[in-house]
């Protein structure tokens, strides 16, 4: 009978969780006080990049190709509105508004990401 759990297993799981916790911690620290931008990519190339301001008026992006998708943005959030792909996972990601949030439609090769950029005034310290 094979053993269920060993010391090596415990080390492996601890390392995995530590890496995840460290990465998430640094990401959260880095994203404070940033201006947010949305990036829309198709086949790995940026096709649209715009500021996600809180008062952004509603807009839609229709992206053609073998699997057409529609992306919408409004009031500081961006999301997959519609997709012709079979499983619609991209639509299930919901609205993205925080830095680092990503939704992707693999069949369409389209990705949407919220990115942060430091405001210029942040550099002034006193």
């Amino acid at each position: 009978m094979k053993k269920l759990f060993s010391k090596a297993d415990a080390v492996l799981i601890a390392v995995l969780l530590l890496i995840a916790a460290a990465a998430l911690f640094f990401r959260m620290r880095g994203s404070a006080g940033e201006e947010r931008f949305a990036r829309i990519e198709k086949d790995g190339e940026t096709i649209s990049y715009f500021r996600l301001s809180e008062d952004l008026p509603y807009r839609e992006y229709e992206i053609g190709g073998a699997v057409p998708v529609t992306i919408a943005a409004e009031n500081g959030a961006v999301w997959f509105l519609h997709s012709e792909c079979p499983d619609r996972l991209c639509v299930r990601f919901g609205k993205l508004s925080k830095t680092g949030e990503t939704a992707v439609c693999l069949p369409a090769r389209v990705a949407v990401t919220v990115e942060g950029e430091k405001k210029a005034v942040d550099a002034v310290t006193g």
Partner: peptide, 18 residues
């Protein structure tokens, strides 16, 4: 296939795998 930003998911995938 899509975007470098996919790597943002890496920490969650560590937790998910565990």
């Amino acid at each position: 296939l899509t975007s470098k930003t996919m790597l943002w998911y890496a920490p969650w995938l560590c937790v998910l795998s565990a």
